[in-house]
């Protein structure tokens, strides 16, 4: 029995002018505590797949099961962090991170102090919680968004290109921080990215998606040696470049096929 099961998912967007098949024949499973990545070019349907898994979007065909129950019936068990931080500009950092708890009516002194502690663990202390999002840098905002997502203690965490808008140095630092935090909490996570290196450095498994329509082209198991390391260390391990080469080659064949 797998923790998360995506079965024969197929999705077509309908608009007046055209129909776009974004996903076709998606089958994947994720085990509890695992960290997997969805790797693929822009427009291949990664965001669509996350929306379907989080039951924000009903697939035209197929089903998603979390612990053998359809996701639509499991409220507040999936945390989803969007492509940008989308912190509410009129709310303070504290109000932002407590938002999920407030909406789920789970806000009490205990959950509140948990959330504030989490903020400290992310290296955001010294009165940040009373500030407004616009007073923070991009990297800090992204960390706040992660705290907001983790505050409701979701069983499954989904991250949609969380580092794509950051500068390289901030990105490397955040990769380590996120990876460590998720390990500490034993969270199951799905990361969406178009950065091959990021996928290798952070995950246990990488699903390579092809576009138009999005399908799972190939799955890569990341060697045990790399998984044990932090993302930054993994990038410097000798095995890293061989996995990189393998994925790169697959991407090349994909490109040739689509031409």
């Amino acid at each position: 029995m797998s923790f998360l099961k995506v079965q024969d998912v197929h999705h077509t967007y309908f608009t007046k002018a055209l129909r776009t098949t974004a996903l076709s024949n998606i089958n994947l499973t994720v085990e509890e505590g695992e960290f997997v990545s969805l790797l693929g070019p822009s427009g291949c349907g990664k965001t669509t797949l996350l929306s379907i898994i989080s039951s924000l979007l009903k697939p035209t065909e197929g089903a998603v099961l979390l612990e053998n129950k359809p996701v639509a019936t499991t409220k507040n068990t999936i945390g989803y962090m969007l492509q940008q931080d989308y912190l509410f500009p009129w709310k303070t950092i504290e109000e932002n991170i407590l938002l999920g708890l407030k909406l789920a009516k789970q806000l009490n002194p205990k959950t509140r102090s948990n959330a504030l502690n989490l903020l400290k663990q992310m290296g955001l202390n010294g009165g940040v919680e009373k500030q407004l999002p616009k007073q923070l840098s991009g990297g800090m905002r992204q960390r706040v968004a992660l705290v907001r997502t983790l505050a409701t203690e979701p069983k499954l965490l989904m991250l949609d290109e969380p580092f794509s808008a950051l500068d390289y140095q901030t990105k490397l630092k955040l990769e380590d921080l996120v990876s460590q935090t998720l390990k500490d909490f034993g969270k199951t996570a799905i990361l969406v990215t178009h950065d091959i290196g990021e996928a290798i450095a952070m995950s246990d498994r990488v699903f390579l998606l092809s576009s138009r329509p999005g399908t799972i082209h190939k799955t890569f198991e990341i060697p045990e040696e790399l998984r044990k390391l932090s993302p930054f260390e993994a990038r410097n391990h000798f095995l890293y470049s061989s996995v990189f080469q393998a994925i790169w080659k697959e991407l090349e064949t994909l490109e040739r096929k689509s031409e």
Partner: peptide, 22 residues
């Protein structure tokens, strides 16, 4: 921005909560 509503929906917000919060 519909993404603000999406954030709220990921927390299971009702339509009324979306109206009030965003």
């Amino acid at each position: 921005d519909p993404n603000y509503l999406k954030v709220l929906q990921t927390f299971g917000a009702t339509r009324f909560q979306c109206f009030k919060e965003a």
